[in-house]
Design a protein around this nucleic acid. Structure first.
Lengths: 218, 218
DNA sequence: AAAACCATCATATCAAGGTATGGCCCGGTG
DNA sequence: CACCGGGCCATACCTTGATATGATGGTTTT
């Protein structure tokens, strides 16, 4: 497990701003509110360090000298992470705001911002982060179990969760019914599914349901 | 069925703006682009008329004299509809944009806007509308079937999709197993589920799974 | 009052699923 | 080489589920 850093007591807020003064004041303010804070002058500095995994949210300036905060936000979106992002800008405008929000930003704050506004935004971002981590943990567990299946077991799982009977699965895979039953039993055990309903929900979450045409169920 | 108006060839764009000139120019422009258009001077006029159901998207001004476009947008969100909304404003700012986007707006365009920008926004809104209608139809079908179930059938469905065996369900509901089987058969037929996997997915979509503690499966 | 519907249960039969035991073939690894 | 694990199959036994037929009692609607 890589990202099992405790987000327990203090949430880690990461700040990227090229203005040292902004970094300093944000850092002291957020610390005084009980958050853990790390600041960076550039996206690269943030990515290089190991904080990205532990971060609960990212406060990101748009104008970063050579880099662009909006581009970086979209880049983050492109990777899996979905780290909650709060954008701040001294020269923001409406199209910029639209773009940021479409990319999933928590909010967009013009500089200078009210401390209360920032605090509210942080609170929402931290809440989103909790959601995100819960989802990720659950799905990582499932994925780990699924990866532990053999190829045949995956085949059978796809068809079982599509609603086919063992007999039909056997036909599809050119197997005997008893073999299907064995694979089925094994995959239920490996996936830790207590019932078929469980397994269907797991398959749904994993996106591994087989598309089954209505014309060859038999 | 109420909302089975064909959104086939021409998508209906509704415009709410208190400025008659804006209404006129938007209407002629959008018509020239092949859209059906209806314009309104106030939210009330829009709601009163029957167009709300047929509309593919709504172009909504923020400053409406006595009314507020953002409030109205949130009011729409509060009702079920989720009609895609494009906000336009002559005096927009960043917090307003954030609020609109958080409420699910397709975009926020400052007035005056480029025709191309509006066209892109409309295209996205129409695409969202298609999604929305598809989802709604599907879920309305499901809901209609579910509403056709008797109380007992709903009970059984909740427990079946939670993964309990007929025997356990019988215990829970203080029934004989054979009665459970009858309800089960009836509900499978009424829900038009071809397999248990089907039914589980339907229950998932309907949000009717019973929460089953691990300590009383038997 | 009759009809329609819901809910309940029984008996009986058949199909499907679950599990155990045992065996065979193959490919990769210590 | 011997061993292990994946994949395959069989027989056997038991449980679970599906369905039909038949029956009783209640409520609501016509």
């Amino acid at each position: 497990m890589t990202g099992s850093v405790a987000a327990s007591a203090e949430s880690l807020i990461c700040v990227i701003d090229d203005d040292a003064e902004v970094r300093g004041s944000l850092e002291s303010f957020l610390r005084s509110c009980g958050y853990a804070v790390r600041t960076f002058a550039s996206p690269d500095a943030f990515l290089t360090c190991d904080a990205a995994d532990a971060a609960a949210c990212l406060v990101l300036d748009v104008q970063l000298g050579d880099a662009n905060g909006l581009d970086f936000q979209e880049q983050l979106l492109g990777s899996d992470s979905h780290l909650p992002v709060i954008l701040i800008s001294g020269h923001g405008d409406i199209p910029m705001t639209v773009r940021a929000m479409k990319a999933g930003a928590v909010t967009f704050l013009p500089k200078p911002f009210e401390e209360d506004d920032m605090l509210r935004a942080i609170a929402e971002a931290v809440a989103r982060d909790r959601e995100r981590r819960a989802k990720r943990n659950e799905s990582a567990l499932l994925r780990a179990r699924y990866d532990g299946l053999t190829g045949r077991e995956r085949d059978v799982m796809g068809l079982v969760t599509a609603g086919l009977m063992n007999k039909q699965i056997a036909g599809r895979l050119a197997l005997s019914e008893i073999t299907v039953k064995i694979h089925r039993g094994n995959l239920m055990r490996k996936m830790e599914a207590e019932s078929l309903a469980d397994l269907v929900r797991m398959a749904e979450a994993l996106g591994v349901r087989e598309a089954v045409s209505r014309y060859n169920h038999g």
